[in-house]
Design a protein around this nucleic acid. Structure first.
Lengths: 143, 143
DNA sequence: ATACCCCTTCGAGCGCGCTCTAAGTCAAGG
DNA sequence: CCTTGACTTAGAGCGCGCTCGAAGGGGTAT
């Protein structure tokens, strides 16, 4: 499988795929006689799993640790399991935090909701006037 | 309230607080006669709310849009509500994704679990050997 | 042979969100 | 008076995860 095809299948750019290989997140792919990468189809599973790790906020450096252990073979199974168990716990925490935030958002939105009738709460502005600022800090102001 | 106190209370560094003021995420704070910031206690509520937005992945540029509307006063209530409603939807999606990933992690871990007995599945390595690489790309290798 | 398009490597650049340094001011305590 | 320590501004630098550009090669269709 060529890199372009893999890109289409995974939604990653060819640039990103090469980058991943370069840093060791993907195994070094076979090259055909003209030097082009020929990916094994099984790479799809691995990339998908990496996607899960990424979605759940695992930094690349940790994925690299995991990938390295994977390369070392069977003996590293329990280390890998441990990494995943620790990570799973972080994901659980993350979900709990988000759910808490969701409640706060609900409350806040409810405060704005009541029939376009303004409540004090949602409009409280701490320190009076806000300085426009943004002199040399930013360019054409995109905000 | 001095910036140092506020830093302690919020867990943000004084650097970060000044940075937030600079970009307009915090209102321009009053200065005492010697030029030092004197924050209104009500800023705590705002910072806490910003924290929620941050936790849920809202980029600073969007927080700035929200903050700007807030400064414009009561008339912007419905725009602000809209921003939050859109964001809430994204948070919900995010949570759903994480929960899906959690299931995948559970499965993966279960695969490693079974009494230290290696299963094929969890060790499948796509393209044979992995090149060490990492020649000029990185320094002393921290991974 | 000539396009055309996808591929290659190497290395620079970018957007984000801080984070830190430098150089200096100010107020309180010993 | 002198030190200490928290504060001030302006601006440079950093870690992350890509993202892109330049310069060139290969294989196929016309």
């Amino acid at each position: 499988m060529k890199i372009g095809d893999l890109a289409k299948r995974t939604g990653l750019s060819t640039h990103t795929l090469r980058y991943y290989e370069r840093i060791g997140l993907l195994p070094y792919a076979d090259r055909d006689r003209s030097g082009q990468r020929d990916f094994d189809a099984s790479i799809l599973t691995w990339i998908e799993f990496l996607g899960r790790l990424k979605t759940t906020g695992m930094p690349i450096r940790d994925m690299l640790r995991y990938a390295a252990l994977r390369d070392e073979g069977d003996a590293t199974g329990s280390s890998r399991r441990q990494i995943l168990e620790v990570h799973r716990e972080q994901v659980r925490t993350q979900i709990a935090e988000l759910q808490e935030c969701l409640l706060v958002l609900d409350t806040k939105i409810a405060g704005y909701a009541s029939d376009e009738q303004r409540t004090k709460e949602n409009d409280a502005r701490p320190n009076a006037r806000r300085k426009p600022l943004r002199s040399r800090t930013a360019g054409p102001v995109t905000h």
